[in-house]
């Protein structure tokens, strides 16, 4: 596995594509999976992932740890995440700045956190606990949010910078989430990216979103069910040109297209990385 392969674009691994990937071995840099989909004992999920892992670098993206839960992370979940990480030896492990478990009930979404000093202490403690158990650094992703809270004390970018400094974690910059949150809260995504602590970024996510119009107001929703918007591509190009090349993932989780459509998005990201980084497409 070469270093430049890890600086390439990758794709979210979907069950719809895994047989084709094993047969055709498409020229993409790496794949990412959601950790929770591989916490069963056996069967086709592990069968296929082991084979994909033998051919490509893998990133493990957790969606259920609930790092922002005031009453503690999802019980027993860190151990299960460790089992997935130990088994598949990913080059990146990431989770979200969000919460989803409350009193043992799992609310299947990435729920928002108020950005306060108290939340920061809690999240930093949980990230530290996760990194200690996993024995490695993890990346924390900026979320798509649809509402803000009363009494917040700092912008998201300051929160993430402080979290990275305090816990030693890296960050996963989701450019689509920036666009979604910016539209929903009326801030300028370029200003957000100007303030973002890029020195901590170890991975970038790109995905499609929906715009829900009602009564003259629009909400952007992070749906991962379509191609990436022109605005997201433009911001991504700027980030790469100014801040350097990062492993970049195309996420497409709903209305999953045929493989060539997803691969086309990966290749588009790849060409942007190459232009900026001067990487040779055939190097890997």
């Amino acid at each position: 596995m070469t270093a430049d392969r890890l600086l390439r674009a990758g794709a979210g691994l979907k069950p719809e594509h895994q047989r084709h990937i094993l047969e055709a071995r498409p020229d993409v840099g790496w794949f990412e999976v959601h950790a929770e989909n591989y916490m069963g004992a056996g069967g086709p999920p592990h069968h296929f992932l082991e084979r994909v892992r033998a051919l490509y670098p893998l990133s493990v993206h957790g969606v259920g740890l609930s790092i922002g839960s005031a009453n503690g992370m999802a019980p027993g979940h860190l151990g299960r995440l460790k089992s997935v990480v130990d088994r598949y030896q990913p080059f990146i492990v990431s989770e979200h700045l969000a919460w989803s478990t409350h009193e043992g009930t799992f609310l299947n979404d990435l729920l928002p956190l108020p950005y306060t000093e108290a939340t920061l202490s809690l999240v930093a403690r949980h990230v530290d606990e996760a990194q200690t158990v996993l024995g490695r650094t993890i990346l924390i992703e900026n979320p798509s949010t649809y509402l803000r809270f009363d009494g917040e004390e700092m912008p998201e970018t300051d929160f993430l910078r402080a979290l990275a400094r305090r816990s030693g974690c890296g960050l996963l910059l989701d450019v689509n989430n920036v666009v979604v949150s910016a539209a929903n809260h009326g801030f300028d995504p370029r200003a957000y990216l100007e303030c973002f602590p890029h020195e901590h970024v170890g991975e970038i996510h790109l995905a499609g979103h929906a715009v829900l119009e009602s009564d003259g107001d629009a909400l952007y929703v992070d749906t991962h069910d379509r191609t990436i918007s022109a605005e997201v591509w433009s911001l991504f190009r700027d980030v790469i040109a100014r801040r350097g090349v990062r492993p970049t993932l195309i996420e497409w989780d709903a209305d999953v297209p045929a493989w060539p459509d997803l691969e086309a998005e990966v290749q588009r990201a790849q060409s942007i990385l190459q232009t900026a980084g001067g990487l040779d497409a055939r190097a890997a």
Partner: peptide
Amino acid sequence: MPAQPDGSGLADLQHRFAHAVLQ
């Protein structure tokens, strides 16, 4: 309405949030 979500404030907020999501 709690002014500052401190440690317990966050727990309260998440409690209210979780119940409102499911009801």
